[in-house]
Design a protein around this nucleic acid. Structure first.
Lengths: 350, 350
DNA sequence: CTGTTAGCGCCTTCAT
DNA sequence: ATGAAGGCGCTAACAG
């Protein structure tokens, strides 16, 4: 019960059912036509100041708010864009969301985000739903299959892909260059003296995992041998996979992302394995937690511009300028305490 | 560019501008009236099977999708609800969002979330915006002031408050019982032998902080002395405030939430202060990270039902049943490695 | 500068 | 069981 208000908002106040205060009510109140009210409300000018003032007053008194549905129907636009993410649980996603959000708001757009809860089907459904309700759609690291993606791409031009490159379907894309980021990370480890490492892998069919693997395999060619243990993208996955990874007696464990590294770190500590004395450990993404752990995580940070760049793409799309850009933003290693030179006897034992 | 599609979707294919495939197009295609199409699409029955089949086929062939805006305008509903959160960065919020989400989806509603980025004004704006676009609004730990809240409550009956109780305004609410949760936590510390602690406080005017403080002050009456150091709700705040908290030489540091505890833990370790040997440390919320840190965090977990309960409230509201329930869900202490009995000499020194 | 009017696409009585 | 027609609230020509 909201205060002493009438229980039903739709109650007709006087005679004819003047339920919601609509544009007509304001027009009547101000003694003008609805067109004038519309012009005033949309701030498009072309209305004399005295009239405009009268309209504003009437609108304020009546508590008028334009109907979103009616506006959308009439204009064909909502000034809202949607973003679907596989899982809000990863702080990295949030970082990007935040950036997209501020950029969008600055341009007068509102961002609505939906969480697919790691379910590719939910992801597809949410996308289609948003697609038909909002002006644009940002897809973050989607796990849906290519046909589903193609179907969506076919239904709209206002689509931007984040952190997944799908060459078969021409969608404007912005993604972290995971491959070279990983390669650089491997280079860091190699320079430290590491020769035998393990990759604690991420979600099987995700683009980012594929790319990071590519980087790792490249690293093999310059002398860093990396075994692979599949895990997943979560803290729990890292925790669960750590023991198996350690059992191969590597001098370094390269984790798919910071979450995995975090979980692995915990498990290693439980096992009495010291990081970085006994083994080096690395993450990916540089989430806020990464710089705080003990030890702080050596990881890979994407240049921070992903979110803003994604919005830039979307903005141009919304303005009617087709884009076909697929840009990879550079990533770079952030060295912290979790990586160090391997102990001499371990390297020698090889 | 999406494949070989026409660059502009609105191009008229034949003669009269038959732009978007609308209900009329389907009706024509199936040789029926739009009313019939409408009935078939909405699955309300009352249409003979042969006809229905013809309509479905026509719709599929044309790739018909009802216009969201038109449906909303005609029915006055969207089957979407919004949720605004102060900051997606806190994993605790995400936990709740996830619960609300699955419950809502199960009832055929879609959840759109918006992030206020810690800005009360943005929070108010987002809320008002959602309010006039969607069927309902969930407000999570809102920081906006009471007048703003009241204004929103006045504009709709479909409003649910999470983790903030505002007696002055009668809004259906579901909140963690922070006060007694904190009290129980203090009880745990007291039982361990602690007598002198510090509270590393959260966002100044947030309800949760106020409640947690109340719990702490209560604790004073049974012998746990707690000084207060204000910080904030983030990892960084915990990191920054830790040294000052430690400088009071407490045997325990009680943090506003797990994020703060996490940051404080890092700083303490940098200072060479061991947890829990030199000082016990506690969090609040039991976010996933809490059980993984080293040491794992002693914290307070709300009974997991907050999200589902919030949706339950909203669902009844949407069904037209006014609610005035304000329910507090119990919270309980989760003891982990970060809390232990204080060293004897410290207690004795008192 | 202001008003009139025709849609926007769909739902929903009300007849048939 | 089906169709015809009147809104839902607003925007955007088009007239004046």
């Amino acid at each position: 019960m909201t205060d002493g208000q009438s229980p039903r908002k739709r109650a007709q106040t006087s005679r004819a059912g003047s339920r919601r205060v609509n544009i007509q009510a304001v027009a009547d109140g101000a003694g003008v036509s609805i067109a004038t009210v519309s012009r005033v409300m949309s701030g498009k000018g072309g209305v004399s100041e005295p009239l405009a003032e009268r309209v504003r007053r009437a609108a304020a008194e009546l508590g008028y708010r334009p109907s979103f549905a009616a506006q959308s129907l009439a204009t064909g636009a909502t000034r809202m864009v949607g973003m679907v993410v596989p899982n809000l649980a990863n702080p990295y996603f949030y970082d990007v969301i935040k950036d997209v959000n501020v950029a969008a708001v600055a341009d007068g757009y509102q961002l609505a985000v939906a969480d697919a809860n790691e379910d590719p089907r939910a992801e597809t459904e949410l996308s289609e739903s948003f697609l038909h309700k909002l002006d644009g759609l940002l897809l973050m690291s989607p796990r849906m299959d290519v046909p589903a993606l193609r179907a969506i791409a076919q239904a709209t031009d206002h689509l931007v892909l984040l952190n997944r490159v799908v060459p078969e379907v021409g969608i404007p894309t912005i993604a972290i260059d995971s491959m070279s980021g990983m390669l650089e990370l491997c280079g860091h480890l190699h320079a430290l003296g590491h020769r035998r490492a393990v990759y604690l892998g991420g979600p099987e069919h995700s683009w980012s995992n594929t790319e990071r693997l590519r980087g790792i395999r490249q690293a093999g060619s310059f002398g860093l041998d990396v075994a692979e243990v599949s895990a997943g993208g979560t803290i729990a996955a890292g925790y669960d996979g750590a023991e198996k990874a350690w059992s191969t007696r590597p001098t370094a464990i390269i984790c798919h992302n910071d979450l995995v590294a975090f979980g692995a770190l915990t498990r290693l500590q439980e096992l009495g394995v010291r990081v970085p004395e006994d083994v080096s450990l690395t993450g990916f993404d540089d989430i806020p937690f990464a710089s705080y752990g003990s030890p702080a995580l050596t990881t890979v940070a994407g240049q921070s511009g992903v979110g803003a760049a994604a919005w830039g793409l979307m903005k141009r799309l919304l303005a009617g300028h087709p884009q076909n850009e697929i840009s990879l933003v550079p990533a770079h290693v952030v060295v912290r305490g979790s990586s160090a030179a391997p102990r001499a006897e371990l390297v020698a034992a090889e």
